[in-house]
Design a binder for these strands. Sequence first.
RNA 1: GCCUGGGUGGCGGAAUGGCAGACGCAACGGACUUAAAAUCCGUUGACCGCAAGGUCAUAUGGGUUCGACUCCCAUCCCAGGCACCA
Length: 852
Amino acid sequence: MNEKYPFDEIEPKWQAYWKDQGFFKVDTGCADRKYYCLVMFPYPSAALHVGHGRNYILGDAVARYKKMQGFNVLTPMGWDAFGLPAENAAIKTGTHPRITTLDNIATMKRQLNSWGICYDWDREVTACLPDYYRWTQWLFIQLFQRGLAYKAKAPVNWCPSCAAVLANEQVIDGKCWRCESEVREKNLEQWFFKITDYAQRLLDDLAKLQGWPDRVKTMQQNWIGRSEGAWVEFPLVPRGDGRVDPRAVVPCFTTRVDTIFGCTYMVVAPEYAGLADMVKGLPEESAVRAFVAEAGKVASADRAAEDREKKGVFTGRYVINPYTGGNIPLWVGDYVLMSYGAGAVMAVPAHDTRDWAFAKKYGLPVKLSIQNAEQLLKLESMDNAFCDDGVTVDSGVFSGLPSAEARSRMTAHAGEKRFGRAMVQYRLRDWLISRQRYWGAPIPIIYCPDCGLVPVPEKDLPVLLPDDVEFRLTGESPLARSSDFMNVPCPKCGQPSRRERDTMDTFVDSSWYFLRFLSPHDERHAIDADACNRWMPVDQYIGGIEHAILHLMYARFFTKALYDMGLIRIDEPFAKLFTQGMICKRSEKDGQLYKMSKSKGNVVSPDDLIRDYGADTVRLYTLFIGPPEKDAEWSDDGIEGAYRFLRRVWRRVYEQRELLAASRPLKPDQSAMQPVERDLLRKTHETIHRVTQDLEGDFHFNTAVAQIMELMNAVDAFSPDGSASDQRKAVFRHAIETVVLLLAPFAPHLAEELWVELGHPAGLLRVAWPVADPAALARDQVEIVIQVNGKLRGTIMLAVGLDKATVEAAALAHPPAAKWASREKLVKTIFVPNKLINLVIRSQGLASCSKA
RNA sequence: GCCUGGGUGGCGGAAUGGCAGACGCAACGGACUUAAAAUCCGUUGACCGCAAGGUCAUAUGGGUUCGACUCCCAUCCCAGGCACCA
């Protein structure tokens, strides 16, 4: 050992040691004290920056802490390795995505290792390799066979830049989640997963997720968007020319059936299926057609903008309000969405802001059907709709009812008269999973002219990606141009057929990988049910908030679907979820704070930092930077502080090496201790207690590290010399050993090295996490805060456990407090044992005033 | 508009009813050094005061309480989610 802190020597040494010792190898046959710690597996984009590092460092610290607590810790890692960036690179450079992806994986794996992050690499899974995507395809077929995967023509989100469709969850503010291009609507035949079948369970089971942050649950709840209401059918008034309508009713969904007596017109979406038939041959037909054509040209994102002026035209048709029997005009309007409810709305301008605006614009009638209990509504003086609940008026037999009651009675009435019923609608749409791209798992379906859609038989899986493709951006899957791939006999009848050309959304790959980690090399099954039932759910899942809806909802859906298939016996995959904040850095260009990204030019490479300061410093600073659930700003100065601290710990052990070697472990005899020794012993155990609490709570690594720094400050202040008593040396040694143990999850290399220097056998992960000794925590004197009228006026040291009267007397004898108290009349005293005494005083004059 | 969070020194942040600013960074002063780096010691919320000490201070304004960063009400601002979803 020497004075210099040789991180560059010790770090590779211990990394090799952990690997050789197989510290994180797990036998999933046994699940005693199991702890499945999982960090979201990354897309192998290129190289990691320190912002990415936060997840892995958090996860590694948790895994090491749990390991030291004696848990059987499973921490696997893999690669979400299919995806567009690699294919886009191939279009530019011609290099096959497999090559760039595997290269990137090698780089990132090296970086994770150099960070000292330990995984059970024997369980590594790589989504783009056939031994994984074979099972992704198998799972697709299981979903297909249960009707949970289907093909349908529908208006879908098309990203022109990615030349592929997107799921609803992947459109953020009308833009592609990956490249931020404006998304366009296209009517295409695509593959969907029927996640809407699970809407209610996905919503209900959020209640089971006690270990999830509320905001993630709220986001999923909003996304699922359940609303209760009624389905009401409005009969079409037969047309005058004798033609018969194919469908005689126009149904709509409403959450406000209580307002229906105020419904003065009805509006259908421009895409409404029966619209062309309804207007055929009418004088209004050409105007309706022109309107529909015009609405189709506007991007759906623009149409959805709330401040956009609503437009519409009269269809020439009328419908009958089934409650009033009255005729009301049927309009077509661009503010009605085809994709929600029935694609039609009953318009109640008096009680709906949007209908109000539309009615005012086109001069449609407005009728009150709800009164406000607090303030009488008058149509003449209203300048907007009244949208709150109230009491029904002018509503026939339903008049005079509170809104809630009116809704239930009126819905029941619709049921009796068979023109409607209660209904629940969800905002959630089915998950669009086909992609017109190469670098994904091929959808294992064959189109036979006679048999139709035929799933690829299990024995023929995987459907391998062909190599004879050219990477071009055409909007059609490159697979379509591989004749070897496309042409295949029908598995059922043998006649020439064609394969599905699209590949699956990469979110399918990540929807089940946490199960595959439990049997990564199983060549006969996708999932090992026994291992899953023993080891699932994941005890602690760690990842970014950006997946609050996307990955985290898809994975929940998959788990539930697999549960229903009887493949596993758990129906929620992640017991606890931790979403860490992003690490940002100020851009040198504009001084603004941005998430680290290559395009912003504000990335910090871990490679340089590990070279200059060592992995432990980078880890410690990353944990210390702030509360882990919040975003944080990377500071180059901050890392110096972490480095200084670790070097100080190293130097202290080095400087005191002889004394440390000479000190015997002593049963601390507190009665014989001097106060400074007693204080350091107490500080040591307080630190153990608080660090453990911080880790057991919400991973407050920042305060945990601060506690250890405080203990180290106390150790430095203590600094015994060679002539110190055995007792003193032992207390010192105990404190510094505790620093080393507590640092083990955070700065593991340094901790391992110093542990050996302190004369212990190698292998800190086998050492039990320290437990605070209550006897050491005890104190015989406490500092009591003296307040006068709630203001701090001094502190005194007193024996522990004194009663109120004694403390009050001591406080009154304390000069500064006595000065304040003596002037006035003592009214009462508030006493918090061992903590505080508050003397409440009133001036004589004031006291008499208040009596008067 | 609705739903979540949040607003504390020069900076990152601590404290969830009981000493506001732990810990770290930066800054300043000092020691060591030919010098620098590193290290060590000290100061550091604002204001008044020679000092003892005092006053103010946790977005703003009220309230509850012996006592409020913490609880309640209102307002402003910031971030995230949802949003023409009937």
